[in-house]
């Protein structure tokens, strides 16, 4: 589920100085969004489109000076789902049959889909990881407000992000307590303890929510998050955004 729990700090490269880091967060988010949507929604088989996008992304990664090893490691962990498409490839009909064994077969169509989906997924993962590695979470949330995501939703996202680590720690304490009392020996017990823990965690969570609410009220909370100051869009932002759009369109034009 949470693949990066060991490294809870996500934005390890956020303090660097590079052309990419000079962009305001909303520009980075917008570039990433455009890139991901353009890549993922291109129909299967458009190899040249993705090649052009990959070149653009490579330039972006180079310019951002992010830590390549971390980036690739994260993408590698997240790419395990490709097995699903592999499975689909084995049973697919259509195209020329290249290899057959009983009802299993590999066809040209199957390979084309496997390659396309893998290419698309990989590019999207690289782009999103680049964004998260280089941009701190508060900046990402601010960018969402600038991009007209409802403030209430962003406020809930922010408050959730703040409490994830707290709740995970609370749960781990409960589990440690159960293990220390030798309650995790049989799977039947384990299920009961885990279920009870989740129930108890909910009660604690709900009460915690009330306490947070009281604390917020006592600090003058009125129902909306305090206004934040946004970084202004500058010349380079507009340039990069235009360049991204042109690049993405260029990739699509090839197949028109």
């Amino acid at each position: 589920m949470l693949l990066h729990i060991s490294s809870f700090q996500l934005d390890i490269d956020s303090q660097r100085a590079s052309p990419w880091h000079q962009l305001v967060p909303q520009t980075r988010v917008l570039c990433a969004l455009l890139f991901v949507f353009a890549t993922a929604l291109t129909p299967n088989g458009h190899w040249w489109t993705w090649t052009i996008y990959a070149i653009g992304l490579a330039i972006g990664i180079r310019l951002s000076r992010s830590t390549l090893s971390v980036l690739l490691k994260r993408v590698a962990i997240e790419s395990t789902f490709l097995g699903v498409v592999l499975l689909g490839t084995l049973f697919r009909q259509g195209g020329t049959v290249l290899w057959q064994w009983g009802s299993l077969q590999i066809t040209t169509l199957g390979l084309m889909i496997l390659g396309s989906v893998a290419f698309k997924a990989l590019l999207c993962l690289l782009m999103l990881n680049l964004l998260v590695l280089t941009t701190p979470v508060p900046a990402l949330l601010n960018a969402l407000i600038v991009l007209k995501v409802p403030p209430l939703l962003v406020a809930i996202l922010a408050s959730m992000y703040r409490y994830i680590a707290v709740l995970i720690e609370e749960f781990q304490k409960m589990r440690q307590a159960a293990t220390a009392r030798n309650l995790m020996r049989y799977s039947r017990w384990q299920r009961l303890i885990m279920g009870n823990m989740i129930g108890s965690l909910f009660i604690r969570t709900y009460e915690r929510g009330d306490r947070i609410h009281q604390a917020m009220l006592s600090r003058g909370y009125t129902g909306l998050p305090p206004a934040v100051t946004f970084s202004k869009v500058r010349q380079p932002d507009i340039k990069v955004l235009t360049l991204t759009v042109i690049w993405l369109l260029l990739g699509q034009i090839i197949y028109l």
Binding site: E170, Q190, M194, L201
Partner: peptide, 28 residues
């Protein structure tokens, strides 16, 4: 927003974190 008013943000936030934590728990 209508039902919870200004409790919405803290309550929904911690509850989302709760579901997130609960999803990480593996059981047999």
């Amino acid at each position: 927003q209508r039902d919870l008013k200004e409790r919405a943000v803290p309550l929904m936030g911690v509850c989302a974190a709760f579901i997130f934590a609960a999803q990480m728990i593996n059981f047999p």
